[in-house]
């Protein structure tokens, strides 16, 4: 069963069409990575899912219920963590969660139990000072706690790690990994290593269009470009070698860094032999010959190219 379904959604801001015929669905108990560079339309899509922005066309359903602009009924099934969550700074974390609990209709005892459990989960237990002095990382943690308070069927996180330092990022990803047992997560980001770490499925958004959708392995297999890295003994010949290699019909891309050349190939095992044959024929001294594992970054670059 799909928790979230978008069908042929369009959104325009003035003359600019920011979302074009966007359709995808997120199955229950999966972690969906919504990938795209800045300005691709990720936040706009999330705000439309929450009913904060009006769609120009198309249909959005959360738990099979249609999302209506300006109405918040479907949000009762959603937990939302904005990229920069803002709070009532005069409240303590406990008071804030209490307010959120009352709004979602939880009973007083439930609020107390759940608040305690979630503050433990995000590492904010025992912090009774006001939110005013919280760091960015602490605010993100509190954001996850408030988002999970009502046991949402769908947790939407809008770039939750983009503004954090490496330690903060790791902490948030660890918390989300724990949270994926209890809910379905839609996670937007442009940090691809984060997606590889916790997501089951991904969708790549580029200029408002969903270019690719599927499981991480499916997408990697379909869009894989193997990279063959050769390290030459002399950097001076790199330019000439690269120009010659570009003439080979199976070479998809090349890049040079010092005396290393990265060559994008469809199948590095087979086509690498032809590259090797060229190097031997031209008597180019090679220090290292290496086939790099395909990464999501390669896929992303390939898709948005």
């Amino acid at each position: 069963m799909s928790i979230l379904e978008l069908s042929n959604v369009y959104k325009r801001f003035g003359e600019t069409e920011v979302i074009k015929d966007l359709s995808f669905s997120v199955p229950e108990h999966s972690v969906f990575g919504f990938i795209g560079k800045n300005g691709a339309g990720k936040t706009t899509t999330m705000k439309m899912i929450l009913g904060f922005l009006q769609t120009d066309a198309g249909d959005i359903r959360v738990c099979s219920e249609k999302v209506a602009y300006g109405l918040t009924k479907t949000n009762r099934n959603i937990g939302y963590l904005p990229d920069v969550p803002e709070y009532y700074s005069y409240m303590t974390p406990k008071e804030y969660l209490h307010l959120c609990g009352e709004i979602t209709g939880l009973k007083k005892e439930e609020i107390q139990t759940k608040s305690k459990e979630l503050l433990n989960l995000v590492g904010l237990e025992g912090i009774n000072r006001r939110i005013r002095g919280f760091s960015r990382g602490m605010k993100q943690r509190l954001g996850i706690a408030q988002a999970l308070l009502n046991d949402p069927k769908l947790l939407i996180c809008d770039e939750p790690t983009s503004a954090l330092d490496p330690v903060g990022r790791k902490d948030i990803l660890d918390i989300l990994s724990l949270a994926k047992d209890r809910t379905t997560i839609v996670f937007s980001t442009h940090i691809l290593s984060d997606v590889e770490r916790i997501c089951d499925r991904i969708g790549i958004l580029d200029n408002g269009k969903l270019m690719v959708e599927g499981t991480v392995n499916e997408v990697k297999d379909n869009y894989r470009t193997d990279t063959l890295r050769i390290e030459l003994a002399f950097g001076a010949v790199c330019e000439k070698v690269t120009e010659d290699l570009k003439k080979l019909p199976f070479v998809r891309s090349t890049s040079i860094e010092e005396n290393k050349i990265d060559i994008g190939l469809m199948n590095a095992q087979e086509q690498g032999l032809s590259v090797m044959a060229y190097l031997v024929a031209e008597k180019v001294p090679v220090l290292r010959y290496e086939i790099l594992e395909p990464s999501l970054e390669n896929v992303f670059m390939e898709v948005i190219r």
């Binding site: 918040t72 939302y80 803002e86 709004i103 308070l149």
Partner: peptide
């Protein structure tokens, strides 16, 4: 933007 979280909770 303090209302965002609260409205997203269904207020």
């Amino acid at each position: 933007g303090t209302l965002i979280n609260i409205l997203a909770k269904g207020l």
